[in-house]
Design a protein around this nucleic acid. Structure first.
Lengths: 152, 152
DNA sequence: GTATGCGTAACAATAAAAGTTACGCTTTAG
DNA sequence: CTAAAGCGTAACTTTTATTGTTACGCATAC
């Protein structure tokens, strides 16, 4: 399958919105994500249902960030996007009555559950505002290097 | 994509082989997994390369377990099956030069790496012999319940 | 009332695992 | 030596989820 990149994309978009502070149309966001407006609406709809963003139709409409970057963690976005499990264990379902298959599946599910718990803990620690700061300071570094050619 | 169940299937098969102790043909294993021999050979080939199982062609041939269940962990099987990452982070690749995208991806990769590390730790703790014991005791439980109808 | 923009339905494209068919090579039985 | 049993592989098709795309309805501002 194509890898699910909705979480990464939405974090990317929300930080841009938080930094720019204004209203963005699906068209503009689509350019950010190198895709088209329908994909944007489809994914943003999930965030809208959870009150992370709002939308307005008609001329001058678009998407607005309803919560501050400091008030949003990656976990919030993850939960808004995906109601189900983050890491599903890839168990087998060939002979559901076979005790060996059941024991193997049970062991895997337990391991995946622990890993999922770790992942969600990490997500909860990741505030979008922190990621935004990292992006800005990386950007400043880059700019300084570019100027350096003129300075030297 | 269809969910990857190779790890679960191979654990299932190896435990059966360990318990039965003999030689199994791809045909027999395919029945265990409710699939066909080619899928079995394809997946077992990876385990053969790592010395977990051996195969012999010709009449009377088949697959043999080369290491004991007590000497194998789920991590061993995982590593034999998948050279790459277990949990890949699902980053975005829309504007690789965008500092915001890079920061978002970096944050996600870091979180996934921690979760992967947890998962591999859990896998390393899971000896196939332990899973086999769980399967056997669950089976005994089941048998006892079935006998109970005659006993009562 | 027309251009702008969201909301959605309905499809095609894509990617990875799994399923399937077919055939070659090796080994044992007879 | 020949036939059957098995592995090894190549070359498909199928499956399932995301992503991409087209098309159209509805709302809003100018």
């Amino acid at each position: 399958m194509k890898r699910d990149s909705r979480l990464a994309r939405m974090i990317h978009v929300l930080i841009h919105m938080g930094l720019l502070g204004g209203r963005e149309t699906s068209e503009t966001i689509a350019k950010m994500l190198n895709t088209n407006p329908v994909v944007v609406r489809r994914t943003m709809a999930a965030l809208k249902r959870k009150g992370v963003v709002g939308s307005e139709g008609g001329r001058g409409g678009g998407w607005v960030l309803l919560r501050s970057l400091d008030d949003l963690t990656v976990l919030d976005i993850q939960k808004a996007l995906d109601e189900g499990e983050v890491l599903s264990a890839g168990v087998s379902d060939d002979h559901p009555a076979c005790p060996v298959e059941r024991a193997a599946n049970a062991a895997l599910v337990q391991a995946f559950d622990k890993a999922e718990s770790t992942l969600l803990d990490e997500f909860a620690k990741l505030r979008l505002s922190i990621i935004a700061e990292h992006a800005l300071s990386a950007d400043r570094q880059l700019t300084r290097h570019q100027d350096g050619r003129n300075d030297g």
